[in-house]
Protein backbone atom coordinates (compact mmCIF):
# COMPACT_ATOMS: atom_id res chain seq x y z
CA UNK A 1 0.00 0.00 0.00
CA UNK A 2 2.85 2.33 0.82
CA UNK A 3 4.18 2.15 -2.73
CA UNK A 4 0.71 2.69 -4.14
CA UNK A 5 0.29 5.75 -2.00
CA UNK A 6 3.51 7.33 -3.31
CA UNK A 7 2.32 6.81 -6.88
CA UNK A 8 -0.99 8.52 -6.25
CA UNK A 9 0.79 11.37 -4.41
CA UNK A 10 2.98 11.93 -7.47
CA UNK A 11 -0.07 11.82 -9.75
CA UNK A 12 -1.86 14.23 -7.48
CA UNK A 13 0.90 16.79 -7.66
CA UNK A 14 1.21 16.42 -11.40
CA UNK A 15 -2.53 16.75 -12.04
CA UNK A 16 -2.77 19.83 -9.82
CA UNK A 17 0.29 21.36 -11.46
CA UNK A 18 -1.24 20.79 -14.88
CA UNK A 19 -4.50 22.35 -13.77
CA UNK A 20 -2.85 25.34 -12.19
CA UNK A 21 -1.22 26.11 -15.52
CA UNK A 22 -4.63 26.54 -17.06
CA UNK A 23 -5.96 29.18 -14.71
CA UNK A 24 -6.55 31.71 -17.41
CA UNK A 25 -10.24 31.18 -17.70
CA UNK A 26 -12.86 33.80 -17.15
CA UNK A 27 -16.22 32.72 -15.96
CA UNK A 28 -19.54 34.38 -15.37
CA UNK A 29 -20.70 34.20 -11.77
CA UNK A 30 -23.64 31.88 -11.37
CA UNK A 31 -26.99 33.55 -11.06
CA UNK A 32 -28.56 33.29 -7.65
CA UNK A 33 -29.97 29.79 -7.17
CA UNK A 34 -33.60 30.36 -8.02
CA UNK A 35 -37.01 29.92 -6.45
CA UNK A 36 -36.20 30.47 -2.80
CA UNK A 37 -38.70 33.28 -2.94
CA UNK A 38 -41.72 31.40 -4.20
CA UNK A 39 -42.69 29.56 -1.06
CA UNK A 40 -46.05 27.86 -1.08
CA UNK A 41 -48.50 27.74 1.79
CA UNK A 42 -48.40 24.63 3.96
CA UNK A 43 -51.58 23.21 2.44
CA UNK A 44 -50.28 23.80 -1.08
CA UNK A 45 -46.97 22.21 -0.22
CA UNK A 46 -48.67 19.12 1.08
CA UNK A 47 -50.99 18.74 -1.85
CA UNK A 48 -48.13 19.29 -4.32
CA UNK A 49 -46.02 16.72 -2.48
CA UNK A 50 -48.89 14.24 -2.55
CA UNK A 51 -49.54 14.83 -6.21
CA UNK A 52 -45.88 14.47 -7.20
CA UNK A 53 -45.40 11.36 -5.09
CA UNK A 54 -48.46 9.74 -6.59
CA UNK A 55 -47.17 10.48 -10.09
CA UNK A 56 -44.21 8.22 -9.34
CA UNK A 57 -46.47 5.48 -7.90
CA UNK A 58 -46.04 6.16 -4.22
CA UNK A 59 -49.12 5.66 -2.04
CA UNK A 60 -49.87 8.70 0.11
CA UNK A 61 -52.10 8.78 3.19
CA UNK A 62 -52.96 11.91 5.10
CA UNK A 63 -53.35 11.45 8.81
CA UNK A 64 -52.81 13.08 12.18
CA UNK A 65 -50.91 12.62 15.40
CA UNK A 66 -53.36 10.37 17.11
CA UNK A 67 -54.62 8.28 14.26
CA UNK A 68 -51.57 7.52 12.18
CA UNK A 69 -50.93 4.19 13.97
CA UNK A 70 -54.36 3.07 12.81
CA UNK A 71 -53.26 3.80 9.26
CA UNK A 72 -50.20 1.72 9.86
CA UNK A 73 -52.23 -1.18 11.20
CA UNK A 74 -54.45 -0.90 8.17
CA UNK A 75 -51.42 -1.04 5.90
CA UNK A 76 -49.79 -4.04 7.51
CA UNK A 77 -53.10 -5.90 7.48
CA UNK A 78 -54.04 -5.10 3.90
CA UNK A 79 -50.55 -5.87 2.57
CA UNK A 80 -50.20 -9.05 4.61
CA UNK A 81 -47.02 -7.87 6.21
CA UNK A 82 -45.83 -10.49 8.65
CA UNK A 83 -42.58 -8.84 9.73
CA UNK A 84 -42.32 -5.09 10.20
CA UNK A 85 -38.91 -3.55 10.83
CA UNK A 86 -39.02 -0.49 13.07
CA UNK A 87 -36.87 1.48 15.41
CA UNK A 88 -38.15 1.36 19.02
CA UNK A 89 -36.98 4.80 20.04
CA UNK A 90 -37.36 7.08 17.10
CA UNK A 91 -39.87 9.87 16.87
CA UNK A 92 -40.71 12.31 14.15
CA UNK A 93 -38.65 14.90 15.90
CA UNK A 94 -36.50 12.41 17.69
CA UNK A 95 -33.52 14.55 16.99
CA UNK A 96 -35.01 17.45 18.90
CA UNK A 97 -35.78 15.35 21.94
CA UNK A 98 -32.33 13.81 21.66
CA UNK A 99 -30.76 17.25 21.76
CA UNK A 100 -33.01 18.20 24.62
CA UNK A 101 -31.91 15.22 26.65
CA UNK A 102 -28.28 16.12 26.07
CA UNK A 103 -28.92 19.68 27.14
CA UNK A 104 -30.76 18.46 30.22
CA UNK A 105 -27.83 16.28 31.17
CA UNK A 106 -25.34 19.06 30.79
CA UNK A 107 -27.29 21.76 32.61
CA UNK A 108 -28.80 19.40 35.15
CA UNK A 109 -32.13 20.96 34.34
CA UNK A 110 -35.12 19.12 35.57
CA UNK A 111 -37.43 20.60 33.00
CA UNK A 112 -39.42 18.03 31.17
CA UNK A 113 -39.62 18.41 27.45
CA UNK A 114 -43.09 19.15 26.32
CA UNK A 115 -43.12 17.32 23.07
CA UNK A 116 -46.10 17.13 20.79
CA UNK A 117 -43.89 14.90 18.70
CA UNK A 118 -44.96 11.62 17.31
CA UNK A 119 -43.04 8.94 19.15
CA UNK A 120 -43.06 6.51 16.30
CA UNK A 121 -41.44 3.58 18.04
CA UNK A 122 -43.27 3.95 21.33
CA UNK A 123 -46.65 4.49 19.68
CA UNK A 124 -46.27 1.42 17.53
CA UNK A 125 -45.26 -0.74 20.45
CA UNK A 126 -48.08 0.51 22.64
CA UNK A 127 -50.66 -0.15 19.98
CA UNK A 128 -49.30 -3.56 19.16
CA UNK A 129 -49.32 -4.63 22.82
CA UNK A 130 -52.56 -3.07 23.87
CA UNK A 131 -54.88 -3.92 21.07
CA UNK A 132 -53.49 -7.24 19.99
CA UNK A 133 -54.82 -5.94 16.78
CA UNK A 134 -52.53 -7.59 14.31
CA UNK A 135 -50.32 -10.63 14.02
CA UNK A 136 -47.58 -8.65 12.33
CA UNK A 137 -44.34 -9.21 14.16
CA UNK A 138 -42.26 -6.18 15.09
CA UNK A 139 -38.55 -6.52 14.38
CA UNK A 140 -35.73 -4.26 15.49
CA UNK A 141 -32.52 -3.57 13.59
CA UNK A 142 -30.76 -5.03 16.58
CA UNK A 143 -27.18 -5.56 15.48
CA UNK A 144 -24.69 -4.42 12.90
CA UNK A 145 -25.46 -5.44 9.36
CA UNK A 146 -22.83 -8.19 9.32
CA UNK A 147 -24.91 -10.05 11.89
CA UNK A 148 -28.37 -8.76 11.05
CA UNK A 149 -28.13 -9.34 7.29
CA UNK A 150 -29.94 -12.71 7.08
CA UNK A 151 -32.88 -11.26 9.06
CA UNK A 152 -32.96 -8.05 7.08
CA UNK A 153 -33.43 -9.90 3.81
CA UNK A 154 -36.45 -11.73 5.32
CA UNK A 155 -38.32 -8.58 6.33
CA UNK A 156 -41.53 -7.65 4.46
CA UNK A 157 -41.67 -3.97 5.30
CA UNK A 158 -39.89 -1.25 7.25
CA UNK A 159 -41.19 1.97 8.72
CA UNK A 160 -38.89 4.97 9.06
CA UNK A 161 -39.09 8.61 9.99
CA UNK A 162 -38.03 11.36 7.61
CA UNK A 163 -36.21 14.63 8.09
CA UNK A 164 -38.77 16.30 5.85
CA UNK A 165 -39.91 16.32 2.25
CA UNK A 166 -39.69 18.44 -0.89
CA UNK A 167 -42.98 19.31 -2.56
CA UNK A 168 -41.64 20.32 -6.00
CA UNK A 169 -39.58 17.15 -6.34
CA UNK A 170 -42.08 14.79 -4.76
CA UNK A 171 -39.23 13.57 -2.60
CA UNK A 172 -38.74 12.47 1.00
CA UNK A 173 -35.58 13.40 2.86
CA UNK A 174 -34.16 10.37 4.65
CA UNK A 175 -31.52 11.05 7.25
CA UNK A 176 -30.35 7.63 8.46
CA UNK A 177 -28.50 7.40 11.77
CA UNK A 178 -27.70 4.94 14.58
CA UNK A 179 -31.37 4.41 15.30
CA UNK A 180 -32.53 4.13 11.73
CA UNK A 181 -29.76 2.53 9.67
CA UNK A 182 -29.44 3.19 5.95
CA UNK A 183 -30.66 -0.17 4.71
CA UNK A 184 -34.08 0.04 6.39
CA UNK A 185 -35.40 2.06 3.48
CA UNK A 186 -33.71 -0.05 0.81
CA UNK A 187 -33.77 -3.80 1.37
CA UNK A 188 -37.36 -4.61 2.49
CA UNK A 189 -39.87 -4.78 -0.39
CA UNK A 190 -42.18 -2.22 1.22
CA UNK A 191 -41.00 1.06 2.70
CA UNK A 192 -43.42 3.02 4.87
CA UNK A 193 -42.29 6.56 5.68
CA UNK A 194 -43.74 9.08 8.09
CA UNK A 195 -43.59 12.74 7.16
CA UNK A 196 -44.47 15.51 9.57
CA UNK A 197 -46.51 18.09 7.65
CA UNK A 198 -44.61 21.07 9.05
CA UNK A 199 -41.32 19.75 7.65
CA UNK A 200 -42.46 19.76 4.03
CA UNK A 201 -40.48 22.36 2.06
CA UNK A 202 -41.29 23.82 -1.32
CA UNK A 203 -37.98 23.29 -3.09
CA UNK A 204 -34.78 21.32 -2.78
CA UNK A 205 -32.83 24.57 -2.48
CA UNK A 206 -35.03 25.61 0.43
CA UNK A 207 -34.49 22.29 2.18
CA UNK A 208 -30.72 22.67 1.92
CA UNK A 209 -30.81 26.26 3.07
CA UNK A 210 -33.25 25.89 5.97
CA UNK A 211 -31.69 22.67 7.16
CA UNK A 212 -28.23 24.28 7.08
CA UNK A 213 -26.93 21.23 5.24
CA UNK A 214 -23.72 22.95 4.25
CA UNK A 215 -22.67 23.20 7.89
CA UNK A 216 -22.22 19.48 8.09
CA UNK A 217 -23.68 16.45 6.44
CA UNK A 218 -24.33 13.12 8.18
CA UNK A 219 -22.77 9.93 6.76
CA UNK A 220 -25.63 9.48 4.35
CA UNK A 221 -28.67 11.41 3.18
CA UNK A 222 -31.05 10.07 0.57
CA UNK A 223 -33.84 11.79 -1.30
CA UNK A 224 -36.46 9.22 -2.20
CA UNK A 225 -39.13 9.72 -4.82
CA UNK A 226 -41.30 6.66 -5.25
CA UNK A 227 -40.56 2.95 -5.32
CA UNK A 228 -37.49 1.76 -7.20
CA UNK A 229 -37.95 1.65 -10.97
CA UNK A 230 -36.26 1.07 -14.30
CA UNK A 231 -36.92 1.66 -17.98
CA UNK A 232 -33.85 -0.17 -19.22
CA UNK A 233 -35.77 -2.66 -21.35
CA UNK A 234 -37.24 -0.91 -24.38
CA UNK A 235 -37.96 2.12 -22.18
CA UNK A 236 -40.89 0.26 -20.61
CA UNK A 237 -41.31 1.63 -17.10
CA UNK A 238 -41.38 -1.08 -14.43
CA UNK A 239 -41.41 -0.69 -10.66
CA UNK A 240 -39.57 -2.52 -7.92
CA UNK A 241 -36.34 -3.52 -9.55
CA UNK A 242 -33.68 -3.55 -6.83
CA UNK A 243 -35.01 -1.34 -4.07
CA UNK A 244 -38.53 -1.38 -2.52
CA UNK A 245 -41.42 -2.33 -4.77
CA UNK A 246 -43.78 -0.08 -2.83
CA UNK A 247 -43.39 3.25 -1.08
CA UNK A 248 -46.17 4.24 1.29
CA UNK A 249 -46.07 7.72 2.78
CA UNK A 250 -48.10 8.77 5.81
CA UNK A 251 -48.23 12.53 6.19
CA UNK A 252 -48.94 13.44 9.80
CA UNK A 253 -50.50 16.82 10.40
Amino acid sequence: MKKGWIVTKQSRDKILKNLNRSQVLHFPFPAEPDNLEKKLSKQDRISLLKQNLEKVRAEVRLSNRTEWVRELVDIVESKNISKLLYSPDVGLDGRISGLWHDAVKIDRLKTRLYSPAVEIGADIRKTWQADNITDTELVEYGEEIEIFKPNLFEIDAAITSTKGAIAENGALILWPDEKEPRLMSLVPPIHIALVEASTVKTSFAEAIECGKWSEGMPSNVVLVSGPSKTADIELVLAFGVHGPKELIVIIVD
Binding site: E144, E178, P181, S219, V222, L223, S228, K229
Partner: peptide, 23 residues
Protein backbone atom coordinates in the same frame (compact mmCIF):
# COMPACT_ATOMS: atom_id res chain seq x y z
CA UNK B 1 -34.98 10.97 -18.90
CA UNK B 2 -37.58 13.70 -18.67
CA UNK B 3 -38.00 12.98 -14.96
CA UNK B 4 -38.60 15.74 -12.43
CA UNK B 5 -36.62 13.69 -9.97
CA UNK B 6 -34.97 10.28 -9.99
CA UNK B 7 -36.13 7.73 -7.45
CA UNK B 8 -32.95 8.15 -5.42
CA UNK B 9 -30.53 10.98 -4.90
CA UNK B 10 -27.81 9.67 -2.67
CA UNK B 11 -25.42 11.90 -0.69
CA UNK B 12 -22.47 9.96 0.71
CA UNK B 13 -20.32 11.90 3.14
CA UNK B 14 -18.56 9.28 5.23
CA UNK B 15 -18.12 5.58 5.90
CA UNK B 16 -19.97 3.96 8.79
CA UNK B 17 -19.38 5.94 11.97
CA UNK B 18 -19.01 4.40 15.43
CA UNK B 19 -22.45 3.39 16.63
CA UNK B 20 -23.96 3.17 13.15
CA UNK B 21 -25.13 -0.28 12.16
CA UNK B 22 -24.59 -0.29 8.41
CA UNK B 23 -22.83 1.43 5.54
Amino acid sequence: TGQRMTTYFNFITSPRKPGEKDG
